[in-house]
């Protein structure tokens, strides 16, 4: 019975891993509590309109430890506790709320780095509103910059 349960758990994890499009070795990485690698271009190319229901694949990442690779948005303020992570260094014409990850640091402040950076942290997803406008859709809380 126990063996069957373990097999089913493994299979279930495999299905989730497959649906997230993460590397095949993700099943083993989960056991070591390694982060789930998520593709930033995939997240930020979502055809999004304020108020719409987000795809289950994305909602399933809420609260998870994930790894994202991207660029600090040009214009990031030095010494700020947050910055925007974007899929390409040039994000002209892509300034909508789904186009970036709002990164906050619990133990660091921003210093602009122009190259690609890899971040690991806790992901949260869903609309955050201010004055009736959606100001963030994807958020990542990290301890510090790499």
């Amino acid at each position: 019975m126990m063996i069957r349960l373990i097999l089913w758990s493994g299979l279930a994890l495999g299905v989730v891993a497959s649906s997230l499009g993460v590397p095949p070795d993700w099943e083993s990485s989960i056991q070591g509590e390694d982060p789930i690698e998520v593709n930033i271009a995939w997240l930020t190319s979502l055809d999004y309109k304020p108020g719409m229901k987000l795809p289950e694949e994305i909602l399933a990442l809420d609260g998870k430890k994930i790894q994202l690779v991207g660029y600090m948005a040009i214009g990031t303020l030095e010494g700020s506790e947050s910055f925007e992570l974007v899929p390409e260094s040039c994000e002209c014409g892509r300034s909508k709320v789904q186009h970036f990850i709002d990164v906050t640091m619990t133990d660091d402040v921003s210093r602009f780095t122009p190259g690609r950076i890899t971040l690991v942290g806790t992901f949260s997803v869903g609309e955050v509103k201010e004055d009736g406008f959606v100001t963030s859709l994807y958020r990542l809380e990290i301890e510090r910059l790499p």
Binding site: P50, S95, K96, V97, F100, D131, F133, V134, T135
Partner: peptide, 14 residues
């Protein structure tokens, strides 16, 4: 005003 001077993220929504 928000579409011109607001935070970049809200401008297109406004």
């Amino acid at each position: 005003g928000a579409a011109i001077h607001g935070r970049v993220v809200i401008r297109s929504q406004a």
